[in-house]
Amino acid sequence: MSEIMYMINGAIYAVFLHNLLFSGGLGASEMLRAAQRNSEIVLTSALISVFSAVSALLNLGVNVLLTSQRDILEWLSWRYGIFSAQLPGMQVVWHAFIFAFILLVLYLLVNLVVHFLPASKHKLLFQKRIGAAALNTLVISIPLLLHLRANTSIGFALGMGLGAGVAFYVVTLLVNSGMHVLRQNKAIPTQFSGVPATLVYTGLLALAFTGFAGGLSLF
């Protein structure tokens, strides 16, 4: 039961308390691109959820494994000189490398599986969106944030992973609807029409979400 509560906490954290897109700009470019295309928001958000959750869980396991093998890491650093484990935060660099590598392997596996599926409209749609959804600053930030916060709860990691997709959906929907309003607004000055007005609108949305997070950056 407590893991389920942790999961809900993780999801609420990712969506509201520290909205990943507005508190760190994670996935901002992909969010703006998805906001232009009404039909792909749900699929992209779902894929982000899946990739975030799976990579968060895999990296949690790696985290625990690496922490338990500290002696080996220290020996390695002593043996090879410059890779000193005494430097502050050294583990972060190694962990980030491993997190990214795991995400890459996951991405390749999924693409290989999809590649050998029979040809269909859905396969083409999936292939289009998998790259953008998987190799995304939002997805790679989940294991990084969990590591920086020294969080080892499976439920929280899963909740944060799933919450990343929900956060992406909520934010993209808000920005998409805002873009529709802006498109109908003929009074926008020419200097602000298009990208500038959209960015200012997104900034004001981020200001609205600051009420939850207090404006603190994720990192």
Binding site: F22, G25, G203, L204, A206, G215
Partner: peptide, 8 residues
């Protein structure tokens, strides 16, 4: 330096 300031 807050994220919303970056967007604006």
């Amino acid at each position: 330096w807050m994220p919303f300031g970056g967007f604006l």
